[in-house]
Design a binder for these strands. Structure first.
Length: 880
DNA sequence: CGGATCGAC
DNA sequence: CTATGTCGATCCG
């Protein structure tokens, strides 16, 4: 979509349009100048709750700026010089990695929704219109824009700016259809093109251009199709306009001169429009009614735009450049109905950027613009000049992004959309303040959301409630549960507690809200889904529906209370929550303290360098290539994950089912776990006692069930202790098994940390939805089984693990998965760290010009790499 | 992990 | 009267 939303800044072309509004002599169509626009907006806005909130937000931004300026004051010349050196090293690397070999196109439909509405209702053609409602506009046509009417503006204010404004309601079905028509064209030029919403798309036409070189003219010939268009074309082609084709700016200007901006496109015609002289049929028609496009990128894009217009009667603007960021900015250059190209040369790129306001850059919004402006940075060249300072003031992700921008680097390939990360629904309404209504609304939202989730077969573990009060203040409250939710009831069970907390928090006043939203995130990844299917469902069908459970070392017993208290009354929810929180914070896990050094080392400054090195080391080592099955303990030749999983599945099928049935036959850990559990049995949430009796509670111990919320925590915990010999029990339900494992693991880690801490390093790893813990033996360790406490003869970790395995009631469900060396959250570096950590940061390989859309931060990319590099013998206890 | 914020369409 | 809805990313605590 056009940059209509970039309101109120110097870059908009109101002035231009105003100067050129020659064609329209109707009264009231002249538009307004910027001053008037601002005045009217201010009058309509001033004093409103909305405005007050805007002021507040503005102040917050100002505070951020002040904070930044204070930080800037403290920077010494020394530091700055050092940073300069570091950054410039990186600049050299980035420069070397510059890739100009791709031809990326950005297509942007002009004022899309408005254009569609005008096309379908000729009465609107000459009028200023906007699409949306009295409370919010999605877009406006170019008439309306001259009055300051823009997207993201409420309709009632637009009406004040432009009393004649016609507001057309949204009709997404229609836009979707048109969008589909356009996409059908685009896909011919790049089957992997990337749509961005209904009206924009990126294409990589590099391959098309190569093929096209060999195409005969006929393949590049297109016909005008409609009667009306043909007339227009005749008119245009016989006018002098199409003769001045070479001066594209003039052409585009004349396009803009046309009030509606939807004239047929004179820019499409080359002065030497080739004709099909020797075509047998309809020769005379061909002369006037067809056009052949050349083989250059410009020609291709003209062809695309021509075809779009012929097919939909709508115009598009386009940008051509060596990467997506530049292409996007190019498409903005000559809109509406124009195109622009940056030649694939370094200098052309830099020239383009030279005086470009940073606000034009995708990703730089109002706030970033203001912050940078405070540093005297307005254009891209200034952005480059201040690179050293920026590296000291902003996060690594930010300043590296700034650097990419100022060098004109961007993604040179179009990445496939990753999997969806969240799904949400929200609604704005006139004030609702009764709790009853709020709950029923909440349920409604959950119902809608559940429906959508089920369409895509998704289940998520985190539910987020969003509230906006009548003062426009937004709050979000999230809760992560241990088993995924997807149904209305499941989601509502979580959301209603969150809502309850908020209602209580303002009691006895009513919660006065104007918006409520519910979001589900934390979906199972594809791999997890596969795992769940293959490894568990296949051989543990006896588990109750949803009886899966996983250990979450980082989670505390809080989970037991909050997550299982869905049906509990409000008051007690609160108490439990508070109690659990304290429990959580005070009951620090001994393992965490043991592993802390290592863990934090990895996380702290300069981690990027270390991790990158580690990754490459691992990649180069042979360790990557061997893999031992955790079930049969045989070395596997393949390190293809799929194959390995298949193998493990087979092994598991053969052995583990049996083992699982024999859980805790000789359970000598019971003694230790009993005292711990008793507290829970009595629901006696006494932190001190728990702390004393089991320091593990906060960490390796965590479980959930999807049992009916009716069953109390007490019941759940009592299940953990087998009250009968296992033989007599029901065919184990998975929850029971896992609880046992849970206990065992507590014991395991506890002893390690208490007695044999030297021999093990425990690394805790959390990657979004996925937690695990694994143990490594240091070389020359004496291995003592943490269960039977006996020293083991072997030094082989594999054998040792086997023993522990047996001790731990044999088997259970273990999976040796790829080792994940790095915690996912590695990126949080303090300012001070950032400055210090810079010392070697720049030596890392530039993670290349990956698509920004991939959304991976540098460190995430690293851990992704690490993930694919399967190495050392580690065991990950991994339960679902 | 949870919460707030930014930015895009 | 009347200031959206949905998503991903990032930063901070």
């Amino acid at each position: 979509m056009d940059d209509m939303k970039k309101v109120g800044n110097s870059s908009c072309n109101d002035g231009l349009l105003l100067r050129m509004g020659l064609n329209d002599n109707k009264a009231g169509m002249q538009g307004l100048d910027k001053e008037k626009i601002n005045k009217i907006i201010m009058e309509a806005t001033k004093g409103s709750r909305f405005y007050e909130n805007e002021l507040k937000k503005d102040q917050q931004v100002n505070q951020r700026i002040e904070k930044m300026m204070r930080l800037k004051e403290k920077i010494t010349t020394q530091q700055l010089l050092k940073a300069q050196l570091q950054v410039d090293k990186l600049v050299i690397e980035l420069e070397q990695s510059r890739n100009l070999s791709n031809t990326i196109v950005h297509i942007d439909m002009d004022a899309f929704y408005a254009a569609v509405e005008m096309r379908d209702n000729p009465e609107l053609k000459e009028k200023p219109i906007a699409v949306g409602s009295m409370s919010m506009l999605s877009t406006s046509n170019y008439h309306a824009r001259r009055f300051g009417v823009r997207a993201a503006m409420p309709g009632f204010i637009a009406k004040k700016l432009c009393p004649h404004l016609t507001i057309v309601p949204l009709n997404f079905e229609k836009y979707g259809k048109v969008s589909k028509e356009v996409r059908e064209i685009l896909t011919e030029y790049d089957p992997n093109f990337m749509p961005m919403g209904l009206d924009e798309a990126y294409l990589n036409i590099t391959e098309h251009l190569e093929e096209r070189l060999n195409w005969p003219e006929d393949k590049r010939r297109f016909f005008f199709n409609t009667e009306s268009t043909r007339e227009k074309v005749y008119r245009l082609t016989s006018s002098p306009i199409h003769l001045c084709i070479k001066e594209k700016d003039d052409i585009n200007m004349s396009a803009k001169c046309n009030e509606d901006g939807y004239s047929s496109s004179p820019v499409l015609f080359e002065e030497n429009t080739p004709l099909m002289d020797n075509h047998p049929e309809q020769r005379d028609q061909s002369v006037e009614n067809s056009i052949v496009f050349g083989t250059s990128a410009e020609e291709v894009v003209k062809e695309i735009r021509f075809r779009i217009e012929q097919k939909t009667q709508l115009t598009a603007s386009a940008g051509i450049a060596p990467n997506t960021m530049l292409a996007k900015m190019c498409s903005d250059r000559n809109k509406p109905n124009g195109q622009y190209r940056i030649a694939p040369e370094r200098q052309a790129v830099l020239d383009f950027l030279k005086d470009l306001p940073i606000r034009k850059v995708p990703g730089i919004g109002k706030v970033t613009e203001k912050m940078l402006k405070a540093l005297g940075i307005v254009t891209c060249s200034e952005l480059y000049q201040q690179r050293a300072l920026l590296s000291l003031l902003f996060s690594e992700a930010s300043w590296r992004n700034f650097l990419d921008i100022s060098l004109g680097l961007g993604s040179t390939h179009l990445e496939k959309d990753g999997e969806r990360k969240s799904m949400s629904t929200e609604r704005t309404f006139s004030e609702i303040n009764s709790a009853e209504d709020q709950y029923s609304l909440c349920r409604e939202l959950c119902r809608d959301l559940a429906q959508e989730l089920q369409k895509e077969g998704l289940k998520g573990k985190t539910v987020t409630l969003k509230l906006k009060n009548v003062n426009f203040e937004v709050k979000t409250r999230a809760s992560t549960v241990l088993s995924s939710v997807s149904t209305e009831d499941e989601i509502f069970a979580v959301a209603k507690d969150l809502l309850g907390t908020e209602i209580d928090s303002v009691a006895p006043h009513p919660l006065r809200i104007r918006l409520m939203g519910v979001r589900v995130s934390g979906f199972l990844s594809e791999e997890e889904k596969k795992y769940q299917q293959k490894s568990i469902k296949s051989f543990l069908k006896s588990g109750r529906e949803n009886g899966f459970l996983r250990l979450q070392p980082g989670k505390s017993n809080q989970q037991y209370f909050t997550k299982n208290s869905e049906a509990s009354p409000r008051g007690s929810f609160f108490d439990k929550k508070r109690a659990a929180r304290q429990l959580n914070s005070e009951n620090l896990c001994p393992n965490e303290t043991v592993g802390e050094q290592l863990f934090h080392d990895q996380k702290s400054s300069a981690n990027f360098v270390k991790e990158t090195k580690k990754v490459t080391d691992l990649q180069n080592s042979n360790l990557c290539k061997t893999f031992t099955c955790p079930v049969c303990f045989e070395e596997q030749s393949s390190n293809n994950l799929e194959e390995l999983n298949r193998h493990i599945d087979e092994c598991l099928n053969g052995t583990v089912v049996k083992d699982a049935m024999e859980i805790s036959k000789n359970d000598n850990s019971r003694e230790n776990t009993l005292s711990f559990l008793l507290h829970f049995e009595n629901e006696n949430v006494d932190e001190c006692q728990i702390n004393k009796t089991d320091q593990l509670a906060g960490t390796d111990q965590s479980a959930s069930t999807s049992d009916d919320s009716a069953s109390s925590s007490t019941e759940k915990f009592t299940q953990i202790i087998p009250d009968k010999p296992h033989r007599e029990r029901q065919p184990s339900n998975l929850s029971d098994i896992a609880r046992n494992v849970c206990m065992k693991q507590c014991l395991f880690t506890k002893r390690i940390s208490q007695d044999k801490g030297d021999h093990f390093e425990k690394t805790e790893h959390t990657e979004k939805t996925h937690s695990s813990c694994f143990f490594e033996a240091k070389e020359d360790s004496i291995l003592v089984c943490p269960v039977c406490n006996l020293q083991q003869k072997t030094t082989s970790l594999v054998s040792f693990n086997r023993h522990v395995d047996v001790c731990l009631n044999k088997g259970l469900i273990q999976e040796l998965t790829e080792k994940k060396d790095f915690p996912a959250k590695t990126s949080n570096t303090e300012n001070s760290n950032r400055v210090g950590g810079l010392s070697r940061g720049q030596q890392c390989a530039n993670p290349s010009q990956g698509t920004k859309r991939s959304g991976l931060t540098t460190s995430q990319s690293v851990s992704k790499k690490a993930k694919s590099c399967n190495s050392k013998h580690t065991i990950e206890m991994f339960f679902k």
